[in-house]
Computed example of a mutant assay.
Amino acid sequence: MSDMPQMTLDDLAENFALFDDWEDRYRYIIDLGKKLPPMPEAEKTEASKVRGCMSQVWLVVLPDPGPPKRLTFHVDSDAHIVRGLAAVMMIIFSGRTPEEILAIDADGIFARLGLDSHISPNRRNGVASMIATIQAMARAA
């Protein structure tokens, strides 16, 4: 996430708490998505497409051999809110070891942020697909 400083989950939760309503939080999520580095068109392939998302989402893993081995993810979407949710996924998962990624309680994090009850069922399915793809990449690493 080259245009934004390294953000932690606690930073994200604190920022969410600053907003009084969900309209402002959605704008913030969209702004996070705008700060994702652009994905080269060559990486937007059928192989990198996340299945199960209504919007188009592409996700690639960039392993850092370490030690310890860490996985950094590159993600993009053709929808602003989904790109923002993908940025949230990068804050949660990117730059961690495969073991750390597999130990993350993504549902608990989404509940902590309030996203579990404030995104549509279709978007929840897409987020679940992104999480499953990231976890599969961590298992394969």
Results as ranks from 00 to 15, higher is better:
30 I>F: 12
13 A>N: 05
139 R>Q: 06
19 F>C: 06
91 I>T: 11
28 Y>W: 13
36 L>R: 03
18 L>I: 08
9 L>I: 11
111 A>N: 08
14 E>L: 14
18 L>K: 11
55 S>W: 04
116 D>A: 09
104 I>M: 08
91 I>S: 03
101 I>G: 11
6 Q>D: 10
73 F>P: 01
128 A>M: 10
8 T>Q: 01
69 K>R: 14
27 R>E: 15
126 G>Q: 07
113 L>T: 00
11 D>L: 01
84 G>W: 00
32 L>R: 05
100 E>F: 13
105 D>P: 00
80 H>Q: 15
27 R>T: 11
55 S>F: 08
37 P>R: 13
128 A>I: 02
135 Q>R: 15
26 Y>G: 06
1 M>V: 12
20 D>P: 09
18 L>M: 11
140 A>Y: 01
69 K>N: 12
50 V>A: 04
48 S>D: 07
37 P>Y: 08
118 H>L: 10
133 T>V: 05
72 T>Y: 13
19 F>R: 06
137 M>T: 07
69 K>D: 09
80 H>V: 06
62 L>N: 14
25 R>E: 09
55 S>N: 09
139 R>H: 08
72 T>P: 08
63 P>N: 01
45 T>W: 08
6 Q>H: 10
26 Y>W: 15
6 Q>L: 13
122 N>K: 15
120 S>I: 03
118 H>D: 12
43 E>Y: 09
120 S>H: 03
35 K>Q: 15
12 L>G: 01
97 T>A: 02
58 W>H: 05
37 P>W: 03
15 N>A: 14
61 V>W: 02
13 A>L: 14
107 D>I: 12
124 R>H: 14
126 G>M: 00
65 P>L: 09
83 R>Y: 03
127 V>D: 13
112 R>V: 05
82 V>L: 01
67 P>V: 02
23 E>A: 11
81 I>R: 02
111 A>E: 11
78 D>P: 00
65 P>I: 04
95 G>K: 10
134 I>P: 01
45 T>E: 00
45 T>F: 15
43 E>W: 14
95 G>L: 07
73 F>H: 10
54 M>W: 12
94 S>V: 07
91 I>F: 00
21 D>G: 12
106 A>E: 03
25 R>F: 08
60 V>Q: 08
129 S>T: 05
59 L>K: 02
31 D>C: 10
49 K>W: 13
102 L>H: 12
141 A>I: 08
117 S>V: 13
140 A>S: 11
55 S>R: 15
82 V>W: 02
128 A>F: 04
130 M>A: 13
110 F>E: 01
25 R>C: 06
88 V>N: 03
39 M>S: 08
129 S>I: 13
69 K>F: 04
46 E>L: 08
98 P>V: 14
74 H>R: 15
92 I>M: 12
98 P>H: 00
69 K>L: 11
10 D>V: 11
50 V>Q: 05
86 A>P: 15
24 D>C: 06
68 P>E: 05
91 I>H: 12
129 S>R: 06
40 P>Y: 02
43 E>I: 05
23 E>Y: 10
22 W>I: 10
46 E>K: 09
68 P>L: 01
108 G>C: 01
38 P>I: 08
45 T>V: 02
112 R>H: 05
57 V>Q: 00
115 L>G: 07
63 P>K: 02
112 R>A: 10
33 G>M: 05
35 K>L: 15
10 D>T: 12
97 T>D: 07
